[in-house]
Write a protein that binds this DNA or RNA. Sequence first.
DNA 1: CGGAGAGTTGAGAAACCTCAAAGCAGGTGG
DNA 2: CCACCTGCTTTGAGGTTTCTCAACTCTCCG
Lengths: 258, 258
Amino acid sequence: MIYVKNHVIFGGCCYSAVIVQQAISKSSLKIACSSCNLRELCLPVNLSSAEVEQVENLTQQKRSYRRGEYLYRSGSRFQSLYAIRTGFFKTQVLHEDGREQVTGFQMAGEIIGLDAISTDVHTCDAIALEDSEICEMPFSSLEELSRDIPSLQHHLHKIMSREIVRDQGIMLLLGSMRAEERLGAFLLNLSQRYAARGYSPNSFQLRMTRQEIGSYLGLKLETVSRTLSLLQQRGLIQIHNKSLDIMDLAGLQSTLKS
Amino acid sequence: MIYVKNHVIFGGCCYSAVIVQQAISKSSLKIACSSCNLRELCLPVNLSSAEVEQVENLTQQKRSYRRGEYLYRSGSRFQSLYAIRTGFFKTQVLHEDGREQVTGFQMAGEIIGLDAISTDVHTCDAIALEDSEICEMPFSSLEELSRDIPSLQHHLHKIMSREIVRDQGIMLLLGSMRAEERLGAFLLNLSQRYAARGYSPNSFQLRMTRQEIGSYLGLKLETVSRTLSLLQQRGLIQIHNKSLDIMDLAGLQSTLKS
DNA sequence: CGGAGAGTTGAGAAACCTCAAAGCAGGTGG
DNA sequence: CCACCTGCTTTGAGGTTTCTCAACTCTCCG
């Protein structure tokens, strides 16, 4: 309910939405997985209600993050994976010399923190791009529980594997596409992910800056801006600041196949 | 024994090495994990000998692959993970339009096939770049066993997480480094990985073509060739065809920090 | 000895970056 | 509630890096 409202109205950083959200967080933020509308994104489909309850017990109290807040930082100790209940995050890695690379944008229903399992230390920063809610899942408990519930175990493996596949797609993008194709692929990806969550695939708000898009796509912010203007001139999109409308989805897709 | 010989002499594609290897494969290729010199790369350190035996039972007969052979293809059904016992592989994803992106080079002790868990279908090709030996591990058995052996379970998670971290590093490389830095990072990475396996970090053979390096690094083969020549002119490396000598490791590292 | 694939090098073109200036939107404080 | 300030965005001009096309050499095998 709140979730939908927050997205449809696009609370973003509008005051009233924040206030509503925080009032809620005191009282009823402890929403059960069983009643979560993102359940099919987070959990395997074939869990019994008893098993879902076990997962619920594992998941600690939901927490809210304000825009700009860090969910975790590179170098901090790993303890939990995080499921995004509402909101939008970016993850980024920092190079010694200060260069930063955005490695992903994560939205509701996605799990972050997987990178830290390998060394027990987070290797990237995760930062909220809008006010967000998080379900924290202590990883050792998750491992323990997944030993008892094979389908949960397999689901966890799938989630990690999916992340690997996603990264390979970005490598393809960064390694062999030109600016226009990169932007096209990026916008189509966002579109699909919004669609999968019941939002319009043709009209949504970009939650990140041109700079962040550029970092993600291996381009400078000016190139991002120019290329978006170009796509607009061609009638494929309409963009004004952070509001995006896809006018010709097929046309946008065809930029990739050339 | 054969393993070391194969590497030190650099059998590559020399006939005699192949013959030796194949003769061996008939008789004694069923080497146990317990006596494998790559054990610490594949398995967790704290397994009991009984547990190691369980893993051995799971691992099917080793198989040899000739240079150029596919270990698996994109689109083929997923059944197993593969541990490289000896040799060298590349993985690549193909774009519809025929563009290809090399997503990694894998050497002895590394596990490949992780990308396929997410959809039960391989999302990339894996191709031997030299004659190689593989331990095949049926994934469903591996999941089953890891439910009984927590440290094996955690190890599997670490391996998958490590792959995610590796991919993030490549994204950083592709997204924000110039040709010279990319080559430097690439050569240093190979160097470290050879060192970790007991080979010289300063002198080794490149098993891949300039084209394949270029695909991996998001560069054209001519750019790879030119940049290697440049690094040689600066006295950082010596390169002749596929033979590489790192002359100034510190100097090579300093190309990254600029 | 010859052919095929791999690698090197050069010259010009294209894509993207850098630097710069100006416009815009949103939040803050008077 | 308005004005200002800051950060984000757009657009232009010129520079740099990398790509493309091409010619030539080298190496490895048959």
